[in-house]
Simulated scan of single mutants.
Amino acid sequence: MKTLFVRGPSLLSRLVLALACSFLLMFIDHRLQAMQPVRLFLNSLVTPVQYLAILPEQILDNFSDSIKTQEQLAEENEQLRQQLLKQQGQLQQFRLLANENKRLRELLGSEQRVPNRRMVAEVIAVASEPFSQQLVINKGTLSGVYEGQAVLDNRGIIGQVQDVGSNTARVLLISDQSHAIPLRSERNDIRVLAQGTGEIGRLQLMFVPHSSELKEGDLLLSSGLGGVYPEGYPVAKIRKINRDESLPFAQVQADPVSALDRVRNVLLLWQNDDERQPIYEDQPDG
Rank of each mutant, 00 (worst) to 15 (best):
L97P: 02
F41P: 01
P9Q: 09
L42W: 12
Q112P: 04
A180N: 04
D261K: 11
P256T: 07
S132K: 05
A74R: 12
N77V: 06
A121G: 11
A53F: 01
Q50F: 14
N188L: 04
V46D: 01
V120I: 14
F94I: 13
D255I: 03
Y280M: 13
P37G: 09
R31E: 14
F5G: 02
K2A: 14
S223G: 03
N77G: 04
I279V: 14
Q82P: 09
N242I: 06
S258Q: 06
L19M: 14
L221R: 05
G148D: 10
S22W: 11
G165A: 03
Q87E: 15
I59K: 06
A180G: 05
A34P: 10
H179P: 00
L91V: 00
I137E: 04
L135R: 05
R113A: 13
L221D: 04
L60N: 04
K68A: 06
L17N: 09
L268R: 07
G144Y: 00
E147W: 06
S22E: 04
P182G: 03
E245F: 15
F207S: 15
G8F: 02
L84A: 12
R202I: 08
L193T: 05
N265E: 14
S175T: 09
S258E: 07
V252H: 00
A180M: 08
L221G: 07
R264S: 10
R243C: 00
Q149F: 06
A20N: 10
G232W: 02
A250G: 09
T168D: 08
Q82M: 12
T168K: 04
F249D: 01
Q277P: 08
